[in-house]
């Protein structure tokens, strides 16, 4: 008999706006955080921030642990599914590749063994894209999982680094910077030991440039984790 919380498809939705992290060691950035909670109870909490346009935003929803079809169930751990919907058009092969990346990252973070034979679905809807999209999706997924109360081994965050033709490193680029860059690196860093969880890249770069990006991403990740803690504190101090 599953506990009450699990049968009613408890959902947490996070609307993540990519915090600005321009430059390594930037001062604590201006962060905009909109939180939508929709649950099985009829009333819902809605906060809208008018400063939405122009930034990358992704809406994330987590459903689960919920029932699953017998053909898809795993006997020893939860089945995690990620659905990524682009802003316009139908999802294509690129979205599928990104979904796989996000899914594997979430799978390593979620303690799936505590919920065997159930499904955890993460739905990501891209609302606007102004650069650093995949990192934004990773951040949204992590905060949604945290808000849904699922048992996690560690938190993770996504950081995008770009290398331009001169070899300069920039964090959290805009779409224009991303297009003009020589290489784009998306790194997911975990919170416990600050190690690299996921790497995805475009363009060519040297091994030293990779190490530099990882070092910069680790510093930036600390700021993002602090942001997670602060916003969770703010959310629970209100209600």
């Amino acid at each position: 008999m599953l506990p009450q919380k699990q049968t009613c498809c408890w959902a947490g939705c996070i609307w993540w706006l990519q915090p600005t992290l321009r430059g390594i060691g930037a001062t604590p950035p201006l962060l905009h955080y909109v939180f939508l909670l929709a649950c099985h109870r009829p009333r819902c909490l809605l906060l809208i921030n008018s400063f939405l346009t122009g930034d990358t935003s992704v809406l994330a929803g987590v459903y689960g642990p919920a029932e699953i079809k017998v053909s898809k169930e795993l006997h020893d751990k939860a089945t995690i599914e990620v659905i990524l919907r682009p802003k316009v058009g139908l999802p294509a092969i690129q979205e599928k590749s990104q979904e796989l990346l996000i899914r594997e990252t979430c799978e390593s973070a979620i303690m799936g063994a505590l919920h065997p034979r159930s499904s955890i679905t993460i739905v990501l809807q891209i609302v606007s894209d102004a650069g650093s999209l995949l990192a934004c999706c990773l951040n949204a997924a992590c905060t949604a999982l945290m808000d849904a109360g699922l048992p996690l081994r560690y938190l993770f965050c996504g950081v995008t680094c770009v290398l331009d033709t001169d070899g300069h490193l920039t964090l959290d680029p805009s779409s224009k910077q991303q297009k003009e860059s020589r290489a784009v690196l998306i790194l997911a860093i975990e919170s416990v030991e600050n190690k690299v969880l996921t790497v995805a890249s475009r363009g060519a770069y040297s091994a030293t440039e990779l190490q530099q990006s990882i070092a910069a991403a680790q510093v930036a990740a600390q700021k993002i984790f602090k942001f997670y803690r602060d916003s969770a504190r703010r959310r629970y101090s209100k209600s």
């Binding site: 997911a188 996921t198 060519a204 091994a207 190490q211």
Partner: peptide, 21 residues
């Protein structure tokens, strides 16, 4: 030219930068 064209690490165990090297 010893340049990295692509790295793909989809989740899984976290690795330290030394192990990556």
């Amino acid at each position: 030219d010893e340049r990295l064209c692509s790295i793909r690490k989809p989740g899984g165990s976290a690795l330290s930068p030394e192990k990556l090297q």
